[in-house]
Simulated scan of single mutants.
Amino acid sequence: MKNPFASLHILDFTHVYSGPYCTMLFADLGAQVLKIEKPEEGDDSRHYLPFKNGQSGYFMYLNRNKKSMTLNLKSKEGKRIVLYLIKRSDIVVENFSPGTMKKLGLDYKEVKKIRPNIIYASISGFGQSGPLCGKPAFDIVAQAMGGMMSITGFPDRPPVKCGASISDANAGIHAAFAIMAALYNREKTGKGQYIDVAMMDTTVSILENYVMQYTLNGIVPKRNGNEHSASAPFDAYQTKDNYVVIATGSNKLFERLIKVMHCEDLIYDSRFATNILRKKHYAELKPVISSWMGKYSTNDIITWLDKAKVPVAPILSIAELVQHPQLQIRNMMVDVNQPGVGNITMPGFPIHFSEINGSVRTPSPLLGENNEEILKNILHYDEKTVQKLKKEKII
């Protein structure tokens, strides 16, 4: 098994989630990711919960397999060092507010002068153009502006964000995909390029059929709770002891469900003959299913519906998830020995290849852990110079 990006050098100016998630994917596939952080402070996420022995679990997860170097990018010597590092880098990734890298003299226009075929990716809330380009954003802002919150939650309750920071993660994944496309293009043409990824744009891109409901039929989608906007029954139901979800996206699946329920007469009910009709009359169908669900245990329902090949699942807690045998056998929970903390468990690399190895090889770096390694082994600075940089708070 090989690491396809073992010779790829990424200079990482990212922080918090979207950018670090993007570069984590490359690091898991073997890329040499050098994370540039602020001296003394570091990535903001180093100060995010949860903590153990003074270290952030948030940071540990998103920055495994990377190296950390602290640099004051506003200092003359700090900028000189980073320009040298850019010369030997294949990719630059940053997720500062638009304009920040330009103020530092490290925007694509300047970087391209010293590394003409660089691939330079910027991730931001609203992109590098448009009336909102300068607007600061975190995940909840992107979810709100990207339409996600308007369709999440129950119709009689206030809008809510997705539990996880889906706009951040989605932007990071799209950025990684874009960088891969740019790498392929560079292999073919020899040319690098600039990549502009916006959290709002990528959130809109995963709104499924909600935008089309409006553009096709003028319908402004509303919050549906756990219901699907285009299929029924597709919902969460309370059982005798917990909850389950089911998804019957076809007539065949619906027939299987009602046979398990011993409600075969529903097959001949004209209100439920097709998916469109079931969605239209779901308020009449839901009580029938809910009543049946409430009589039996979660385990019984899952056993019966699994046997009938009806998509069904319990709603797992994080504690149940971490211990689940499906994730265990697929190496989706991995143990990492974090210096100063000890053995910790985190999600593994989520893609399985036949010829490529995506894995967690090293823990997240301590702040500036690799300063001397980079300065001495790559820039060939002597000990005296390194100590001078520390004293002047350049590193």
Rank of each mutant, 00 (worst) to 15 (best):
K103F: 00
M145V: 11
S75E: 13
I114R: 01
S165R: 06
V93R: 00
I151K: 04
G163V: 04
M149R: 13
D168F: 05
S150T: 03
P98C: 03
G147C: 06
T100I: 12
M148I: 15
I118T: 06
I123H: 11
D90Q: 03
N117R: 04
S122M: 12
I151V: 15
E77C: 09
P116Y: 11
S167P: 07
I81N: 09
I151D: 01
L85G: 02
D168P: 07
M149D: 11
K87Q: 14
L106Y: 02
R157T: 07
L104V: 06
K161F: 09
M101N: 03
M145I: 03
G134K: 14
K102S: 15
A144P: 02
A169S: 08
K161P: 08
I123E: 13
K135T: 11
P131S: 09
F138A: 11
E110K: 15
Y108N: 10
D156T: 12
R80V: 05
P155M: 07
L132M: 15
R115T: 05
D90S: 04
P158N: 00
P131L: 08
L85Y: 05
D168I: 08
K76I: 13
I140W: 06
N117H: 14
T152C: 02
G153R: 08
F96Q: 14
D90P: 01
A137F: 12
Q128A: 09
I123D: 13
Y84R: 13
I114G: 03
I119T: 08
D107F: 12
P159C: 15
T100Q: 01
I91M: 06
M101F: 10
S129F: 10
K113W: 02
E77M: 09
G146S: 05
R157D: 00
Y84W: 03
K102V: 01
P155F: 01
I119F: 05
K135R: 14
Y108A: 01
E94H: 14
L104E: 11
V82C: 11
L104P: 00
E94D: 10
Q128N: 08
P159Q: 12
K76L: 15
V82M: 02
S129K: 14
P158M: 05
L104F: 09
V92G: 09
G125H: 05
I151F: 02
D156A: 04
K87P: 00
P116V: 04
D107L: 10
I81Q: 10
G130C: 09
S122H: 10
D90H: 12
L73C: 13
G163C: 13
F154C: 00
V160K: 11
F154K: 00
M101T: 01
M148N: 04
V111P: 05
L73P: 06
V160E: 01
S129R: 13
K76E: 15
K112N: 00
E94R: 03
P159F: 13
G105P: 00
P155H: 04
E77R: 13
K112H: 02
V141T: 08
I119C: 04
A144D: 08
K102Y: 02
L83G: 02
A142E: 12
I140H: 07
G130S: 11
P159N: 15
Y84C: 07
I151S: 00
F96H: 13
G146F: 02
R88V: 12
G105Q: 01
P116G: 12
L132C: 08
P131N: 07
R115H: 12
D139G: 07
S122N: 11
V82A: 10
A169K: 06
A121R: 03
R157I: 01
